[in-house]
């Protein structure tokens, strides 16, 4: 546990140093932190033995909320919570339906909802500008409108701060009675019911929390890229989130950030070179990790320590 905190602090420091030493990396690392926050949500659901193949919908909700509201209200301190709340609200509404289902149903119903959202974003051109996407208008931070370089640092800082905040939150949550009951859904859901604990409500709480973190992740992505397109909701984007969760390992709240950083760094170099085979490589690595290193990167690291 102590080692985990130490590693988290070192990791955060390393990110800051990298972003400072190699300026263009700041963009990549901010995206990695944003996705890491969203992947924390996937990790929660994995703890319950469930996997969502449609989590990109919450990123899309957060990102589009940012893009839609920015022209009316440019204050990030208001926009970010708004994006989080809208994603969480949506998560609550569909969650009430989804938590009745497990396994393949849970995974595929999530995918179905994400596909619906994607096609609406793509087809309702009058509102969403379709595949052209929407540019995010100029933002202000606590009333100030800093120049571009400073602003990039601010967004990076916010992403890092929120990553630490949500990482801690998830860690406490997973050790709490609710978090332990959540893990109980994976192994003995009937027991929960016979202890008088409503398993669906336990899962719903986790689902809404994961939707909220997805929304925050999406809002941060929008603040970084300054342009949102339906692509953010596409199933491949959800697949990437699941990939990161498994790559990083579900064993620790650090896993998603380890996974996301590794993923985004590799993608910068590799994705353009092998654009048509990118999903294939992800799928291949996913298979290898699942079949040969089920604990992910985090599992490999912690095993080395114990040895």
């Amino acid at each position: 546990m102590k080692r985990e905190s130490l590693l988290a602090a070192l990791g955060a420091l390393a990110l800051v140093v990298c972003a400072w030493a190699v300026p263009w990396l700041k963009f990549v690392l901010t995206i990695a932190l944003a996705k890491g926050i969203a992947v924390l949500g996937i990790l929660l659901l994995l703890r319950a033995g469930q996997v969502s193949f449609g989590h990109s919908m919450f990123l899309a909700l957060g990102a589009y909320t940012m893009a839609f509201l920015a022209p009316m209200e440019d204050e990030v301190l208001l926009l970010l919570p708004a994006a989080a709340l809208i994603a969480a609200g949506f998560g609550l509404v569909i969650g009430l339906f989804l938590v009745r289902y497990r396994d393949i149903f849970f995974g595929m119903l999530n995918l179905a909802f994400a596909m619906v959202l994607y096609s609406l974003l793509e087809k309702l051109y009058a509102i969403t500008k379709g595949t052209d996407g929407i540019r995010v208008a100029a933002l202000s931070f606590a009333g100030t409108e800093p120049e571009r370089g400073t602003q990039e640092w601010i967004v990076f800082g916010i992403a890092l701060g929120l990553a630490i905040l949500f990482g801690l939150l998830v860690r406490f949550y997973l050790a709490s009675p609710m978090g332990r009951a959540l893990a109980g859904i994976k192994t003995r859901e009937t027991r929960l019911e016979f202890m008088g604990v409503p398993a669906r409500r336990v899962l719903l709480f986790a689902y809404v929390l994961s939707a909220l973190m997805g929304g925050v992740g999406g809002a941060l992505v929008a603040m970084t890229t300054r342009h949102v397109t339906p692509q953010i909701a596409y199933w491949t984007a959800s697949g990437e989130l699941v990939f990161i969760a498994i790559l990083g390992g579900a064993g620790s709240a650090l896993g998603p950030f380890l996974g996301a950083t590794a993923f985004e760094l590799v993608r910068v170099y590799a994705a353009a070179a092998v654009a048509d085979a990118w999903q294939m490589i992800l799928g291949g690595v996913l298979l290898v990790v699942i079949l040969f290193a089920p604990g992910g990167v985090w599992g490999l690291l912690s095993r080395r320590w114990r040895a």
Partner: peptide, 23 residues
């Protein structure tokens, strides 16, 4: 194996086959 594992494996296969088509 665990359900979630089986799901992930066929999902990985799905990712692979989608790109096989493109290639």
């Amino acid at each position: 194996h665990e359900d979630v594992l089986q799901l992930l494996v066929t999902f990985a296969l799905f990712m692979i086959l989608e790109d096989v088509q493109k290639l």
